[in-house]
Computed example of a mutant assay.
Amino acid sequence: MSRTVAVIGGGAIGLSVAWRAAQAGWTVTVHDPAVASGASWVAGGMLAPLSEGWPGEDAVLAAGAASLQRWPDFGRELEALSGESLFTSDGSLTVARDAADAADLRRVAEWLETQGYRLDLLSRAEIRAAEPSLAPGIRLALLAATESAVDNRALVRALRRATVDAGVAFTPQAVTDVDALDADQVVIAAGTAAARLWPGLPVRPVKGEILRLHHRPGVAPAPTRTIRGSVHGRPVYLVPRGDGIVVGATQHESGEDTQVTVAGVRDLIADAGALMPSIGEYELYETAAGLRPMSPDNLPILGRVSDKVVLAAGAGRNGILLTPLSADAVVAELSGTPLAEAKTCSPDRFDGLGASIDRVRK
């Protein structure tokens, strides 16, 4: 018998779930009035669980690393199916401009080693040799050679092509009532809107502004690696693209606001220039803002909450990184065999969500 699943949300995670579910034999419909938009369209595309790791966030690191491990095969399969070129950087470099930042880098490196990841600390001379366009005042850097980045817009184009080829149907219907959907199973992968579809889901919107810069003739080329740093306490990253650099990202608890502010653009340009002085000569091609769907503990919420509904929510600032793990976890839930690597991401860690799972298990 045909098994049907409705996926609410057509961002990177929703499309990946739909694609993998169709490959597993499900008849899939994606419900989204604006497929491949929202946070997936605005994202920086970093695949950097080690660089973003912080002592004490062991579960966040484990989930991100499990998804990073899936990315090479996941990305190559999509590239072969779609003809898109996805990967844009070779490694990540987190830099320190002062003594306090350098101390933090050493602390992170020591913690990562206890988790089984040995990263290299680079001196001033090694930094200049690796990325000559960076500011000469940078005193220390942490190199994560296994990390990467992808072009998020190429990713959603590739996923749209892959889902169509796999037989996934699309409807622009905006879902307001999960119970009204005529499907055997429902997957909620609707970003910040997920909280409106499942009562008690602890997902909140956090605005992030980004800049897309185009390279101009005669200007220093973009770094080959993703560059991360902190300027005046503000985190900033530079992600290479084929035509330039993506600079991000601000972070504001501002509800559903997606307007780009003058202050946000000013700070991003100033902070990026502190890491790479020549960036001021690039063309400011686009400014954009998206809403990150954040969970209270920075872990995604992946798993079953009723006999019909599975969540793929709360990926936060790591939605692109967590895409392959989220898809595998959801398809495993649909088949009744939960994915061990996603156990810490289960909804039952939150009061009110876990109760519904207990009823299912009984």
Rank of each mutant, 00 (worst) to 15 (best):
residue 3 R to V: 12
residue 87 F to Y: 07
residue 9 G to T: 08
residue 43 A to Q: 02
residue 295 S to I: 03
residue 164 V to R: 12
residue 288 A to V: 04
residue 209 E to D: 06
residue 201 L to V: 12
residue 271 D to T: 01
residue 1 M to D: 12
residue 153 R to K: 12
residue 13 I to K: 00
residue 326 S to L: 06
residue 4 T to L: 05
residue 291 L to Y: 11
residue 262 V to I: 14
residue 14 G to D: 09
residue 72 P to C: 05
residue 318 N to K: 14
residue 229 G to F: 10
residue 166 A to Q: 12
residue 269 I to Q: 08
residue 113 E to T: 14
residue 73 D to S: 13
residue 345 C to M: 15
residue 273 G to E: 15
residue 43 A to H: 04
residue 120 D to V: 11
residue 128 R to Y: 00
residue 98 D to G: 01
residue 318 N to M: 07
residue 79 E to R: 01
residue 194 A to K: 02
residue 82 S to Y: 05
residue 295 S to F: 04
residue 5 V to F: 02
residue 239 V to Q: 03
residue 267 D to E: 15
residue 66 A to C: 05
residue 165 D to F: 01
residue 21 A to N: 10
residue 46 M to H: 01
residue 51 S to N: 07
residue 213 L to D: 07
residue 359 R to I: 15
residue 316 G to Q: 13
residue 180 A to Y: 01
residue 301 I to M: 05
residue 316 G to E: 08
residue 147 E to A: 07
residue 300 P to G: 09
residue 296 P to C: 05
residue 274 A to S: 09
residue 44 G to R: 07
residue 186 V to N: 00
residue 130 A to F: 10
residue 335 S to A: 15
residue 349 R to G: 02
residue 133 S to P: 00
residue 329 A to P: 04
residue 208 G to Q: 10
residue 114 T to Q: 10
residue 208 G to E: 04
residue 283 E to T: 08
residue 6 A to W: 01
residue 271 D to I: 03
residue 97 R to I: 13
residue 151 D to A: 04
residue 53 G to Q: 04
residue 60 V to P: 01
residue 110 E to R: 11
residue 254 S to E: 15
residue 279 I to T: 01
residue 256 E to M: 13
residue 229 G to H: 10
residue 122 L to F: 10
residue 264 G to E: 05
residue 288 A to Y: 10
residue 288 A to R: 15
residue 337 T to R: 14
residue 141 A to I: 08
residue 88 T to G: 00
residue 212 R to Y: 14
residue 18 A to L: 05
residue 146 T to I: 09
residue 215 H to Q: 13
residue 32 D to N: 00
residue 307 D to P: 00
residue 136 P to H: 11
residue 85 S to I: 11
residue 137 G to I: 01
residue 266 R to K: 08
residue 149 A to M: 02
residue 1 M to A: 10
residue 338 P to I: 13
residue 65 A to R: 05
residue 163 T to Y: 00
residue 215 H to S: 13
residue 293 P to I: 11
residue 10 G to A: 11
residue 89 S to E: 06
residue 10 G to V: 08
residue 157 R to W: 11
residue 282 Y to C: 08
residue 118 R to L: 13
residue 41 W to V: 01
residue 22 A to E: 10
residue 337 T to M: 07
residue 276 M to W: 11
residue 284 L to N: 01
residue 230 S to F: 02
residue 68 L to M: 07
residue 119 L to K: 02
residue 213 L to K: 05
residue 94 T to W: 07
residue 304 R to V: 09
residue 30 V to M: 02
residue 144 A to K: 00
residue 310 V to L: 11
